[in-house]
């Protein structure tokens, strides 16, 4: 039996991709099982999945602590301790990235690391970052655990032919970095210089600056605060209640586009403040300014500005100074 843990973000299709693998395994005459981790799933928030594939019966129904393989749909997640946690000696990593093995800080026990620019492929083919079907192509190439034809047929049935193409592209482009030695093939990003790939690379860089936030209850969080529970006097938590500061998600890391205000056009009407769902527009010395600490980049302010003084700019363009501004994520 192979135990595979998947990491992604809400909206990237972790669950559907895993279900298709199970479908392909069953269609191919073997056994498959997938358990999603039900946290608070929202667009952009981290998502886990536990996938098991076997020739024989799969009886256990638990989370996976020591995976044989990791499938990582978003390389900004490698900053979370939970992502690489427990990988078996020689375990395989399949990751959506334009980086190298060294840049991804993979753990020392890792075996082959398979890297594919699934975001680039999906943006090129669909105009959106839905990397799951491309990752399926990489998965089957890297593992051979399900039959390629069966899997690709299932992809086409569920998502349509464009997705089969994404899987096919990833199957061809995915590149293995063994534990010691040379990459089997240069990463796609270094070879191709197409617009989509470039943009994707820039975005990856942008996303990378935002610190990934761990879902509460994940092993990562436990690891960060091993004694958090014991420090509190017993009496205090007879009833489930908060007592240790505030729960704050790093929602700035969700942002793909950021609102930028042109003060030459702004007439200080305040509508951007009034309409911001996150309260990221604040009034400072009689002037409205945008704070990027928690702004999710929804674009309501830009859309509603009567003077067109706010534009939505790719977050990646601000990568250099973003680190200094992103102060969120006190998990």
């Amino acid at each position: 039996m192979k135990e595979i843990r998947l990491h992604g973000r809400g909206g990237q299709g972790v669950v559907k991709a895993s279900q298709i693998i199970v479908k392909a395994a069953v269609a191919g005459g073997s056994k498959g099982q997938f358990i999603p981790f039900f946290g608070v799933e929202r667009k952009g928030s981290p998502v886990f999945g536990y996938l098991r594939l076997s020739d024989g019966e799969i009886r256990r129904k638990t989370q996976i602590y020591e995976p044989d393989m990791l499938v990582i749909m978003d390389d900004s997640l490698v900053g979370m301790e939970a992502t690489y946690s427990g990988l078996k000696e020689g375990g395989t990593i399949i990751i959506n990235s334009v980086k190298t093995r060294e840049e991804l800080n993979v753990p020392p026990q890792a075996g082959d690391v398979w890297i594919v620019d699934a975001t680039g492929i999906s943006e090129e083919l669909f105009g959106r970052n839905i990397p799951n079907t491309a990752m399926l192509g990489a998965f089957v190439k890297a593992t051979g655990l399900v039959e390629k034809d069966v899997l690709f047929e299932a992809i086409g049935e569920t998502f349509g032919e464009a997705n089969t193409e994404a899987a096919e592209r990833a199957f061809e482009e995915v590149c293995a970095y063994p534990a010691d030695g040379q990459a089997s093939k240069k990463p796609a990003a270094e070879e191709a210089g197409g617009q989509a790939v470039k943009k994707s690379a820039a975005e990856e860089a942008g996303r990378q600056t935002a610190q990934a936030s761990a879902p509460a209850g994940s092993s990562a969080e436990k690891a960060e605060k091993p004694d958090g529970q014991e420090e509190k006097p017993k009496r205090k938590h007879i009833t489930p209640k908060g007592g240790e500061g505030m729960y704050i998600l790093d929602t700035a890391s969700w942002r793909v586009f950021r609102p930028v205000m042109d003060k030459d056009k702004c007439v200080e009407c305040g509508l951007c403040m009034a309409y911001c769902p996150v309260n990221s527009v604040v009034s400072k010395e009689d002037s409205y300014v945008i704070s990027y600490d928690y702004c999710k980049g929804c674009g309501l302010c830009a859309k509603e500005c009567p003077r067109g003084a706010i534009s939505m700019e790719p977050e990646a363009d601000f990568a250099a100074d973003a680190g200094a501004e992103l102060t969120g994520g006190e998990m």
Partner: peptide, 30 residues
């Protein structure tokens, strides 16, 4: 004015909550 009211009104909710981008509920709650 309502803008003055909002300018001076402290946000009571955690600044980072996982409501979707552009959520009407989050705006109303805050």
């Amino acid at each position: 004015s309502y803008l003055d009211v909002l300018k001076n009104a402290e946000d009571m909710v955690s600044p980072g909550i996982s409501a979707c981008q552009g959520c009407g509920g989050e705006l109303i709650l805050r």
